[in-house]
């Protein structure tokens, strides 16, 4: 089991805003700070834009973990987008939990354009935690269940 975990390379999608975290991740690059290759970054204008359906889509497509990261409170380029995102996350987390989706697989951060080193830490930490949790097979079960129920209704 432990060997399996060590061999397991989680696939993680990072949903980030253009103004803070994307720029922060750029800074990680220009600072040549190394981090794990498991995270793919998707750029959005603002965390307020990140529809949580996208998170579910990512799980459905096989993601083992998700990072959502944007500007720190009060630093949003659009004033309040990150507050909307935070609020949505608070509500959505309860819903996910209710649905039986493991909320430990979603990591919510604030990384500013100046926090290159923090971005590397965030990635490495998330990768380590998701690796510990193992491949996310439960979601497929949920997805299968939904499909089956829908099929039964038809």
């Amino acid at each position: 089991m432990d060997e399996n975990k060590a061999a397991f390379e989680p696939r993680i999608i990072a949903f980030v805003c253009n103004w803070c975290t994307y720029a922060g991740a750029d800074l990680t690059g220009t600072s040549r700070i190394k981090y794990a290759t498991n995270v793919e970054i998707v750029r959005f204008p603002c965390t307020g834009r990140i529809d949580f359906m996208l998170l579910l889509k990512a799980f459905a497509a096989g993601a083992d973990g998700i990072i959502v990261s944007g500007c720190h409170p009060n630093d949003c380029h659009y004033t309040s987008g990150n507050f909307h995102a935070r609020r949505r996350w608070i509500v959505f987390r309860g819903l996910l939990d209710f649905l039986g989706i493991d909320v430990r697989r979603i990591h919510y951060y604030w990384v500013s354009a100046a926090e290159g080193a923090k971005w590397a830490e965030v990635v490495n930490q998330t990768v380590a935690e998701i690796r510990e949790l193992g491949p996310y097979t439960e979601y497929k079960k949920v997805a299968n269940y939904i499909e089956e129920t829908e099929a039964a209704h038809e």
């Binding site: 959005f44 204008p45 603002c46 307020g48 834009r49 990140i50 529809d51 949580f52 380029h77 659009y78 309040s80 987008g81 909307h84 949505r88």
Partner: peptide
């Protein structure tokens, strides 16, 4: 519109 997209997720 400044294109933040907050409306989209609402």
């Amino acid at each position: 519109c400044q294109g933040c997209g907050t409306c989209v997720s609402f």
